[in-house]
Simulated scan of single mutants.
Amino acid sequence: MNQPLTLRSEAESLASPMPPLLAQAEHLATTVILGEHGRRRAGTGDTFWQYRPAQAHDTARSIDWRRSARSDTAFVQDREWQIAQSVLMWVDPAASMRFSSNDNLPAKSDVARILGLATAILLVRGGERVGLTGLRLPPKRGEGQLQQMAQILTEDAEVDYGSPDTHGMLPHSHAFFISDFLGDLTSVETALRKAADRGVQGALLQILDPQEEAFPFDGRTVFQSMTGAVEHETLKAGDLRDRYLIRMAERKDRLSELAHMTSWSFQTHHTDTPATAALLWLYQALERR
């Protein structure tokens, strides 16, 4: 899959109320007021939050006289603060994302792009502004924005591993990064710290092929990066399994730790499992911010 229209079509299917794949996501969309994310603090909005005792600065017209009549205290209705938020995303375009262990599984890049665009579709439907990190596509609303996003997301980068781009992140906005995160984690740490310094909160979604978790290799094996720049041959691949699994577990623990330190969320999704759960998790992670 390498055409913008194909990507958009599959993302629309994932974000549509019709296919069973997105039954849970549609339930989420109907039970949450998309685009009007209550922040659980007083402000301008239409949704009732709480009654509070009237204070000296409150005007007489702001007092809820019906509620106040039931006690000796005057009460005011607080409305929940609501505002359309800006959400920026980075979907790893690097060569490592094009890996698939067999023809029956999608490439990690396909899953990442569909999930990223499906999340954007849900956010735009709710009135949010969405865009891409890197200053190329600032956050906006509308179908035109989704079309441009689909076009850009189909582009590949000829490097083995990607580094999150934090350029263009607005202060106190929201963001999410989708990648296999198999490259140097220093770049991830740097990106998250920069985001945290700007008050940006969000989510890390790691996409892995099941083979990358299981390491089912034995005997003579040649390991080669997707660009061919890195190659390693061994006669006893099975002897590497335990060390590989330990390092993979340590990597995931480090990603989880970095997310926790910067008030982000972290989750891993495997390409042999339905994308619905990952879409729901990603949307809910942004909703909780």
Rank of each mutant, 00 (worst) to 15 (best):
L240V: 05
S163Y: 00
D165S: 07
G183H: 00
D184Y: 00
L182T: 01
M169S: 07
A175F: 12
A175W: 09
A175H: 04
R247A: 15
L204I: 03
A191M: 10
P210H: 06
R243V: 05
H167S: 14
R247N: 14
Q147P: 02
A196S: 15
F223A: 03
T221M: 14
V188Q: 03
D209I: 05
D165E: 08
D218Y: 09
H172L: 11
S225Y: 01
V188E: 04
D239L: 14
A191K: 06
S163R: 11
E155S: 11
V200A: 07
L205G: 04
L146C: 08
V222E: 15
D218S: 15
R220W: 03
F217Y: 15
D180L: 01
D160G: 05
D165F: 03
L146G: 10
L182A: 11
Q151N: 12
D242W: 06
M149H: 09
L153P: 12
R247F: 04
S225Q: 03
M149Y: 09
A196C: 07
P164K: 02
S187T: 15
P171M: 10
H167A: 15
V222W: 05
A237N: 07
Q224M: 12
E233G: 02
G168Q: 06
G219L: 10
T227I: 05
E231D: 03
F215P: 00
A229T: 15
D180G: 02
